[in-house]
């Protein structure tokens, strides 16, 4: 095993952090969604790594389910964005602040 599995995990952590920062600094709801996808991919990588490390198939199955959830989430999320755009004519999350006092 040439590449230590820890490296994969560190890579996963870096990707996750980048995704998090992306969620925080972007104002475009679409890009925020993409950042979330990025975070999910980082998690998938960690799962596959653990699966490899444990010689088990369960991690890969989990990745499969995460993809399912991600697909569902992306579809519903994008539908929300469309509905939102239709009502407010913007997808800038800073302009969507009717929930404040």
């Amino acid at each position: 095993m040439a590449v230590p599995l820890t490296w994969y995990l560190v890579l996963s952590g870096i990707l996750f952090s980048i995704g998090t920062v992306g969620v925080l600094i972007n104002r475009n709801a679409l890009v925020i969604f993409m950042s979330i996808e990025l975070m999910l991919n980082a998690v998938n990588l960690a799962f596959v790594t653990f699966s490899r490390q444990q010689n088990s198939m369960d991690g890969q199955i989990f990745v499969f389910f995460i993809m399912t959830v991600a697909a569902a989430e992306a579809v519903v999320g994008l539908a929300i964005i469309i509905a939102l755009f239709r009502n407010k004519a913007t997808i800038n999350v800073d302009d969507i602040n009717i929930m404040k006092w």
């Binding site: 998090t20 969620v23 925080l24 600094i25 104002r27 999350v93 800073d94 969507i96 602040n97 009717i98 929930m99 404040k100 006092w101």
Partner: peptide, 17 residues
């Protein structure tokens, strides 16, 4: 405390992080 309720989603996300 309501001052912390900015209504800006990214602020809340920052708090979560």
């Amino acid at each position: 405390l309501k001052l912390s309720q900015t209504g800006l989603v990214r602020n809340y996300a920052l708090s979560i992080m």
